[in-house]
Design a protein around this nucleic acid. Sequence first.
DNA 1: GATCCACCTGAAACCGGTTTCAGAAGACAC
DNA 2: GTGTCTTCTGAAACCGGTTTCAGGTGGATC
Lengths: 341, 341
Amino acid sequence: MNDFSAAQRSRVTMLDVAEHAKVSKASVSRFIGEDRALLSDAIAQRIEQSIAELGYRPNQMARGLKRGRTRLIGMLVADIRNPYSIAVMHGVETACRQHGYSLVVCNTDRDDEQERQHLALLRSYNIEGLIVNTLGHHRDELHELHREMPLVLVDRKVEHLESDMVGLDNPAAVEMALAHLEERGYRDVLLVTEPFDGTSSRIERVSSFKTKIAQRPALRGTMIETGSELAAHLKSFLDTPGPGPKALFCANGIAALSSTHALRELKCNLFEDVGLIALDDLDWYPLVGSGITALAQPTTEIGASAFECLLKRLRGDDGALRTLDFSPQLVMRGSTLGVFR
Amino acid sequence: MNDFSAAQRSRVTMLDVAEHAKVSKASVSRFIGEDRALLSDAIAQRIEQSIAELGYRPNQMARGLKRGRTRLIGMLVADIRNPYSIAVMHGVETACRQHGYSLVVCNTDRDDEQERQHLALLRSYNIEGLIVNTLGHHRDELHELHREMPLVLVDRKVEHLESDMVGLDNPAAVEMALAHLEERGYRDVLLVTEPFDGTSSRIERVSSFKTKIAQRPALRGTMIETGSELAAHLKSFLDTPGPGPKALFCANGIAALSSTHALRELKCNLFEDVGLIALDDLDWYPLVGSGITALAQPTTEIGASAFECLLKRLRGDDGALRTLDFSPQLVMRGSTLGVFR
DNA sequence: GATCCACCTGAAACCGGTTTCAGAAGACAC
DNA sequence: GTGTCTTCTGAAACCGGTTTCAGGTGGATC
């Protein structure tokens, strides 16, 4: 085995290539970079051959040092195990790759202190831009970072932080859900959301829910948070007489998971006793009961847009702030067959 | 808005700190690094204050250049949307963070060319170690990389690549599954696996299945791959008379997802007509039919072990190659109630 | 008081690249 | 043949750190 502790930096360096090709480092650097046109054919060819022969690979760290361009994008994720975050991340990563950037993902596990540490870290690695999908406390750090590089928020708003934002059109999504539920004959809707921890999209969905419910006199709307007492709360919702057929509206995939768990615990007949529509479309939705109706988010597009926002800023666009709100798509399944079953 | 294209490197540098504290760069460097003991209290205090006052943060890129230590670990993942990979990645990331390392994740989307590009990329960023969860074609690149840094394979073996490995004890897992199925009264077992693409763990599971089935004369064992004709194949399995009650053994989470889909398509009564046990334990398993029995992999441990392998090597351990095989844990649910229902 | 040593400190070289700048070489016009 | 303009090239400075090395200081020893 090798001994890796003795940092045996045996790699081929630019100087090696220069000597091998009998040219200066400067010429090799020009060949590597975008100034290749400056070189004569003869020299370019010699360099090309030496590079191939020695198997030279430029050191991005060193390049980034003088140049200020690391081709690194940072992404701060609150919960790496959240399917939504993963899906968006996949979109970001793909877009990054297509433009020659790489992605450094930092997971905070919803911990504020870890968020702070990761911010410091990303900064110390000279990333060129930052995608934020956390609560964004540590306003000062974020501001400071934002002075140095473009920043885009995904699925979150952060107060007093003026940056581009990409996410779901939450009012439209809520409207879509309620319209669908009402059309299918449901009259008593319970919004199930994860606890309020400051996540802006969560708050928006709830407040839209309240507004939209008020505009639909046929519907009654109530709300609960997931947690240890979810099943009990669901039970009381189901047992309380209402204006008509009951349905749950789960504000995201996690809420859908918890709700379904709870419904099973209550020996509920999925989904004849109660309808269900969920934000996010996860791969197991079709498998539960008669299938869960979903409002699918265009996660790949959201991720790609987030990156493209950064890219535009990096290329000098200093126009007005952008807010990109994508619309969800209704994927109808058995859980909202409603009164027409 | 700022103009980020004009790389306005306005950051506080070590020289700024040195001048502010009226000391040399060398002293500041010593303060930052592990040589703080060399400094007198007076100087250390001045430096500390200057750092705080100016808000100085050392540039990791520059540190890595001379030092050869970037504190960066690379991870090559075949499919970032595979729950198993995510779970392991989460384990790796947590372990990294605890030891002051950061993780650069590269997703290849199962594409060989992307694997090659990512390998080159990771190398150019001077990562200190690499965790591989892809097919590992591009043997030459991997070898070359492995000469420079420690490398550990997760859930994969790569021929002719001598490196540490961390994964599941596949024979034990298969044994566990078959023992459970037999005990529950099933006699006709169909192994459902994703198509053979060279993934070694997949191959191991299948070959163990064949071996173990041979050792259990009471059982009949057959095998199919997921794909467009999965439902048809399942149907013929279910329709063909066998030695007794039938059960599926899904070799991973994806196979479990496809199989459940197919069973629903066949209007199969989950899980009274057929039993099911699946490798991996996904959060929706309890929700399908009477719940899917799982062999849960200790993914967090696997991820952490992978990182610790690297760390040991980085610290100079050049002992024999290690192979860490973890055992799964049986999580019994309704899908294997079997003949005792 | 001289010698030795342990302890601190800073100047300068270095890591592997990029970029500036000055100069060499060739093309062209006169 | 000279002057001017391009076009190409390399030396050297630079990015922001680390590390080597030589020297300065003060205390202990003789």
